[in-house]
Design a protein around this nucleic acid. Structure first.
Lengths: 120, 120
DNA sequence: GACTTAATTGCGACTGAGTTGCACAAAATT
DNA sequence: AATTTTGTGCAACTCAGTCGCAATTAAGTC
């Protein structure tokens, strides 16, 4: 029996490096940047980025850029938006109060930038 | 008489370099990346980025990252969202059909990633 | 378990955006 | 016209992310 990450659509092998990345993301409450985790990563950064790319292709994770110019990664959960405060740089996951109804567009990711209640 | 970009709040001088950046952004229909304009820029890239930073502080321009990992710049116009297609990488400016009502948050920028009608 | 092979990894070299310190230039202020 | 402030060019730097390649490993087959 093949040990695959996503048996239906994927042909990714479940390696130690991949397990480590998914573990880290799984145990975090918020999206993480490469800088956040590079010290806990035993693998080479090329391996990290190659796997991140694969995971994104497979739809396992999402990534986006914050206003601090860093890229953040998280496991793809139920669709939700991210709010990024331009002042304190904090990233919040939000349940969007309104659902977008944009015909013909598939929405995968929403990023809202502005100022959070604390920083206004 | 002082020549300033925004006499009320700013102390930025309207220099040739700054005029050039604003000109280029003003004449473009869509947000531009550094790569898009570097060949038309006569100034040093340090000057470019320092001015971009000033402009952002002053609220004259906005910038955001696309899924092609490039940073895009545009003049701040009436608030509107950007849709970025993950497949063809095209960036569209959209009039959001629903207004967000997020109390205590100030929204300055909305980025929606997904697939456009062409790429679905 | 040993064998095969395609996928995965580490390494080192590289790219290119963005930053920084510094000395010089251009405005603005006195 | 001298002084202070602000802006610029240059060169050196940082660091995320990529690439080619040779060595390693997971998964399937016997």
């Amino acid at each position: 029996m093949k040990k695959e990450i996503n048996p239906d659509t994927s042909s990714l092998k479940l390696t130690t490096a991949r397990k480590a990345i998914l573990e880290i993301l799984h145990h975090s409450k918020h999206p993480l940047s490469y800088e956040d985790i590079k010290n806990s990563l035993l693998m080479d950064k090329a391996t990290f980025y190659r796997n991140i790319a694969k995971f994104e292709e497979e739809g396992l994770i999402d990534s986006f850029e914050s206003s601090d110019k860093k890229r953040y990664f998280e496991l793809r959960k139920s669709p939700h938006a991210h709010f990024i405060c331009k002042v304190c740089q904090k990233i919040e996951c939000m349940n969007l109060p309104c659902t977008f109804e944009m015909e013909a567009y598939t929405i995968e990711n929403v990023i809202i930038k502005g100022k959070c209640p604390h920083c206004r």
